[in-house]
Amino acid sequence: MEIKKINEQENTLEIKNLVIHYISDEEVVKAVNGVNIIIKAGKTLGLVGETGAGKTTTALSILNLVPEPQGKILSGEVLLQGRSVLSMSERELEVMRGDKVAMIFQDPMTSLNPVHTVGRQIAESIEIHRKVSKQQALKQAKEMLELVGIPSERSNEYPYQFSGGMKQRVDIAIALACSPDLLIADEPTTALDVTIQAQVLKLINELRQEYHMSMLMITHDLGIVAEVCDEVSIAYAGRIIEHGTLEDIFDHMRHPYTKGLFNALPDIGVKRSELKPIKGLMPDPTNLPSGCPFHPRCDYVMEVCSQSLPENKWLSETHCVECHLYKDTNESML
């Protein structure tokens, strides 16, 4: 799938044709099979997909932290502000991580070190990237805490003294400590309850706008996407099968899988309507079906679907889809 080149300078992140497999003695897990992603400066891209669609692996590749030794980046390019991440030296990577790109993790309960105070953990990132003394770093850490809505007096407390939502705020403070250009949020609200989810999302969104950051929001919650994202990429079996602006995807979805995702959402306005689940399960990434990976589950399956991988089709300037239904014409055949 090729995304039209707009202007290289404007893109904070560009992932081209990325292929990552996890290779062990017994099997090959095809986690990412040719992902293309572009995030423009200051914009938020939502990467949506089921568990095992290769979302997190893609995100880790941006930091060049795909788990070794099993994880192998077989081909593709990751360009961060035009610089190739995959060819950086270890030293360059350490300078880039945290300063240019920062990540918010799924589970704040496990992503904070239990034996350090939260202030120290925020200061750590500042100390690594900025030439400041320990005291100054701690002072800045306290400011970051205030910024995410935690009183700075609590910087001397340990993670176990915080609630889940506050820990996630601390996580956000760590990620934003060096005001990165790109923020990766890997399902940042999955471990939180719904009311806290809303607060945390609001906080992320506000800070992102304040700092003019680009963001990659990884999630499987379409509600979150609608709230914070500018563009959406739908991932399935390690490929981006549909990409577009929020309107393209939410109002004019084209791919049968995307339609399936929306059909599986409960509608609060309609009484007693039954949800239509997508039949079947996510394919086994060690043994992907031939042709289009979605064809065994697709309601509109055709003969060609099992034979060849669909090409990327641009439906408009912003909207593209990878499906045989849209082979020859821009018109929907559905």
Partner: peptide, 11 residues
Amino acid sequence: EYVEAARTIGA
């Protein structure tokens, strides 16, 4: 995870 997190901030 916090070790992984430390790596993402460039430690």
